[in-house]
Amino acid sequence: MARYLLKKLGSIVVSLFIIITITFILMKIAPGGPFTSERKTSPAIEKQMMEAYGLNDPIHKQYIDYLIKAAKFDFGPSFKYDGQEVTDIIKRSLPYSLILGAEAILIALAFGVLLGVIAAIRHNKFADYTAMVIAVLGISVPSFIMATILQYIFAIKLQALPIARFESFAHTILPAIALATTPLAFIARLMRSSMLEVMSADYIKTAKSKGLSERVVTYRHALRNAMLPVVSYLGPLVVSVLTGSFVIEKIFGIPGLGNEFVVSVTNRDYTVIMGTTVFFSVLLLVSILVVDLIYGLIDPRIKVTSKEAGK
C-alpha cells in the first residue's frame, strides 16, 4: 500500500513538472511584455522593473529559478497589483472557492445519485422518464446560463435569495446550484445506467433467491456496486466544478480563486496566471489520488491488485 502511494506521488510530481514547464514556456512566448499595457512606462523605468523581476536573466536561469520557487510554493509578486504576492492572492481567495466547490460537489453527488437510483428502480416508468428529461436538460443548459436563470427567478422575481456576493450561507445557494447542475445531470445518467447493469447481475439474483426484500437487495447489494463508476467520476467532477467556478464566480461577484484567475487572464498578469494554473493542477492531481484511495476502500478487489503491483 505504501509503495502504491509512493508510486502515485511520484507520477504526480512528474505531471506537475511537465505542467509547470509548459505554462512557463507558454507565458514566455505570450505576446507583449507584462508592462506594455495601459500604463505608458518610460523605457528606463521598464528596464528597471524588468531587472527587479529578473526578466533580463537568460531564459534557462529564469526557468530554473521558477522551478525552485514553485517547489517552495512561491510564485513571486503579481505584475499588476503592486506589492501583492501570488501566494497571498491564492490564500485570500481560496476559502471562498473551497466552500462553494464543496457545496456544489455535495449537491451534485447527493441529488445525482438519488435521481439515478430512482430512475433505475422505476425503469421505463414515468419517474424514469422524468428523471432522464431533467438530466438531459441539465447537461444541455450551460452552468452560466443556469446561473442567470436562477438569479432571475430567485433573486429578481421572487426576491428570495441574494443575487450576488458572498456574505452568508444564503449567498452560496444559487452559485452552488448553478455550479452543480451539469455534473449532477452526468452523475444521474451514470448512476442510472450503472444501477441498471448491476440490477441484472447474477449476484442480485443470488441475493433475491436468499429471500431478501427488494429494499435490502437494492440498497445493500446493488447500490454499493453501482456507486463504483460514480466514484471514478469524482475526478472529472472536481474538474467540472473548478472550471465552472471561473464563470460562476464572475457572474455572482464572488472574490474566489476562479475569479482571480479570470481577472489575471484579462489583465495578462502572467505570474498570477502561472501560479493559479500550477495550484489548480496540484489540487486536481491530489483529488484524483484521493479518489483512487476511496475507490480502494469501496472495492475490495482493488487492494489486491495494488498489492500485487507493489511486489
Binding site: 505576446p31 474538474v239 487572464v265 496566471i273 492531481l285
Partner: peptide, 20 residues
C-alpha cells in the same frame, strides 16, 4: 495522458491568452 491530465478549459484559456 499528460495532455489530458490538465483540465481542458484551463488549457484552452491559457492558449487563448497567448494567441491573438
Amino acid at each position: 495522458d499528460v495532455l489530458y491530465s490538465v483540465p481542458y478549459l484551463l488549457v484552452v484559456i491559457l492558449l487563448m491568452v497567448i494567441m491573438p
